[in-house]
Design a protein around this nucleic acid. Structure first.
Lengths: 140, 140
DNA sequence: ATACGACTTCAAGTCAACTTGAGGTCAAGT
DNA sequence: ACTTGACCTCAAGTTGACTTGAAGTCGTAT
């Protein structure tokens, strides 16, 4: 089985060497051996990196992702967690949709200043009033 | 015109005192005077905070938001910027929708391991292959 | 007059996910 | 034998948006 240099991994995955070393440091990936000092990776590392990119784009943190691999390196992406995340994303989509509609409205609204636009005002109320405790959207 | 203590602003806006001081430090809000050492805010600061919360949730940074206020403190939310942001959000919505559908599929897919699900594989390819340069979604 | 508690300042710390920089190593090509 | 350049390590820096902590001030109620 042919092993890959870090440069090759970078080229084929788009993930920078510094990031790869960082991922190794936090335990996300491993290099199987060294050629001199140089890390040698198994080709399947590329798949793993795709997996990581995917999970990241789904809003999982690196720590979350770390938990998705079993001790023997197998993927274990619990289905209920996936569903939960899908629901969060759904929620986020709804928020963003409201936001986008609001923005479109504001952009087209003939009121001289946005503050005078009634929709904008009620939008402000809606955005500003919720959650005097937490502010972050569920899935970034 | 009745002025408000920082505690009152906090209570009515949900924004913590430390955050309010920070916002003042970066020039987003101002306190009009002091009562002893204590900042006193005009009531319209609450509106401004709603505005800030709104813009933040639309994906604008504090620096962006700072640029939306003129020197005399008036709101100036350029319509073309708004449209551009709306389009970015639209794009993000599409990405998230794809993602959500993919997640739902994966959660329901009968393949024993996700890696064996063909849709998941092509999904990985799609997520992992784009942009060997930049990785961040446009509007978080 | 004194205590209380709500505020104040300022510097430093936090978080995630990396990136940067200085200085070093090593295998392969000439 | 030597140069090249791709890699290495390790500590420290970066970013944005705050938060925390220690030590101090002040108005108001008792």
């Amino acid at each position: 089985m042919k092993l890959l240099d870090i440069g090759e991994i970078t080229e084929r995955s788009g993930v920078k060497p510094s990031t790869l070393r960082y991922y190794e440091e936090v335990g996300l990936i491993q290099s199987v051996t060294r050629h001199g000092l140089r890390r040698q990776y198994e080709p399947q590392t590329l798949t793993k990196l795709s997996l990581i990119a995917f999970a990241k784009s789904a809003g999982f943190s690196l720590a979350d992702i770390l938990g998705m691999f079993t001790d023997n390196g197998q993927l274990q992406f619990p289905r209920d967690q996936i569903r939960a995340r899908a629901d969060q994303i759904d929620q986020r989509i709804k928020e963003l949709t409201t936001l986008r509609n609001a923005l479109h409205h504001v952009a087209d609204c003939p009121a001289p200043s946005h503050l005078e636009c009634p929709s904008f005002q009620s939008l402000l109320k809606a955005t500003g009033k919720r959650s005097p405790a937490k502010k972050k959207p569920p899935a970034r």
